[in-house]
Design a protein around this nucleic acid. Structure first.
Lengths: 122, 122
DNA sequence: GAAGAGATGAGAATTAATTATCATTATAGC
DNA sequence: GCTATAATGATAATTAATTCTCATCTCTTC
């Protein structure tokens, strides 16, 4: 059976408060403010388990590793800051993007990434 | 001074014929049909040099390493096949995407990636 | 509060992509 | 054709992300 540990609760709380995709390192950093002893392996284990459970989903953005975000959220896209490398949510989506594919291609999803500098970094 | 080697010519030809972004491994594979002795290190070196010269540009798509494509091309986007993992060009672009960013964010570029199955894989 | 079993944490191991090393080869300029 | 020197190819080394190992800890249940 699966146990409800301090660590897992902390990791869930980190995502619930984040409102944007997080890398495992970011989860570690924020999680250690709640459970200081939290280790990176535990973050990887739990993030993976939460994704398997369908509570988190993977976000693959250019440059480096996977990020994770809460799964049950309305369709949205991402903004990647070139300065601080944080990812942010973009809640608007251009319509009918999936119509743009070449003839004969079957589209089952899309990702739109805006690049630039976030409000903090400007 | 920079020399015009068989290997570099082959790599340039591979990109000129590709019409889509290529990984270093793909460049190696196609390049070896022209120069069979071509090595992976040479591909990395030349691809990097050609990118520094502005002849190639880097394309970062989800999942794994960098890809490269001819630099001087009209604005376009990419389709990533979930089955064969090849990247293809998409020549249409939804208008005004960069307007979608949150208040206070400065956008200087964007990437739209369509996911699905390419014509071959269907 | 004791016992069993899943979870943790620290660091080692793995993996994949990329870069460095270095003896050998091939190109550009004479 | 000859020379010097940049480029190559094979492989080792590096790097960063992720996973594994295992002794220890701590939930859960009784």
């Amino acid at each position: 059976m699966q146990r409800d540990t301090r660590q897992r609760r902390a990791i869930r709380r980190v995502f619930a408060n984040a409102g944007r995709p997080l890398t495992p390192d970011e989860v570690l950093e924020h999680g250690q403010r709640i459970v200081p002893s939290l280790g990176l392996a535990t973050v990887y284990r739990n993030v993976k388990a939460l994704a398997d459970d369908g509570w988190l989903s993977q976000v693959e953005l250019p440059g480096g590793g996977l990020r994770y975000e809460l799964a049950e959220r309305p369709h949205h896209h991402h903004f990647l800051c070139r300065s601080c490398d944080l990812a942010f949510d973009v809640h608007k989506c251009p319509d009918e993007v999936e119509e743009l594919a070449p003839e004969g291609f079957e589209v089952d999803g899309h990702e739109l990434i805006l690049f630039g500098r976030c409000a903090e970094c400007r």
